[in-house]
Amino acid sequence: MINPVLALSLFFVVLLVVFLLFRPEKGFYWKFAGMLASNEKTLMEDVLKQIYHMEHAGNTGSLLSLKGTLDISEEKLVKVIAGMESKGLIRTDGTKISLRQEGNDYAIKIIRAHRLWEKYLADKTGVDKREWHHLAERAEHKLTKEQVDDLALSLGDPRYDPHGDPIPTSKGDMQYIQHVSLPLFPVDKQGYIVHIEDEPESIYEQIIAKNLQVGAQIKVIEANERRIRFSSEGEEVVLTPIVANNISVAEQRRSGVFRKNTRKLSGLKLGEKSKIAGLSRECRGANRRRLLDLGFVPGTEVETCLSSPLGNPRAYLIKGASIALRKEQADLVLIEMNNDIAYGN
């Protein structure tokens, strides 16, 4: 006969321990496994990548700046840098650290793996976009060159990752788009989002919460030190300049994006008709393919024909069939702006 109080407390202690060890992401077990995985090679590759980004942004790398961004002990960093120098990847000149050609190539290889993996996660899995970066940070150290090339082939050799960053080719070329950050973009001009920075996470979360996406059309209405007000796909958005700074915008190019004024299908009221303008860039992978298969292609007439008792999902009449979509899906289908509906409402 076991004392029930004792049995119950024992049970909850065990449950708590298991929870602390294995809870998603933050469990001690995962942390410990992650620590084991981050060896010398990982660290070196992270340092290389960081120097590359610094040089790319027009800064020079130094011990101090590296220590600030990488969050490791100085002692460890010095050791790694010495090792890299002896391998001929970098050269040091006083406090300045710069990449040699080999180091540069190495860094580009890592970046290629990282961005392709993000593309893979976006197109071929159901992983939430908040986790792409984090998972790619791990995968980039593990993928071999052959694996990366096979991955590129099966993804159709993409040029940009889901955040809009160019993916280096196997030869190391990258296609950059001319762009400026959103606060600097001229007022009243048509543009589209080419890149959304996924770091730091807190700012990225705010951008995602506003439903802003790479490829989305925008027009800045008002820009000052306090706020940036702009419209994107028929909805008005207000951001602080700090957040807006992490969004890069380019002038409207002629093909590929929607030239007409568009809005979201989710805004089409019951019984209203419109024409499909296209699918948002943010609609990816299996979801995009499925919507295209179902007939959500540009120029097709669409009508909101039914709403479920709870308001979501709604059914749309398209090419003779009634297809139900959830609101978050209908958000990604863009329709032509009807003339009688005021822009921005």
């Binding site: 998603p24 899995t125 992983v127 299996a286 059914a315 069939a321 009634s322 297809i323 979509l325």
Partner: peptide, 16 residues
């Protein structure tokens, strides 16, 4: 859906 299966592909289609 929030732990082991969160990486699995998820699409929604429902034809009436």
């Amino acid at each position: 859906s929030n732990t082991v299966l969160k990486g699995a592909v998820s699409t929604f289609t429902l034809e009436l």
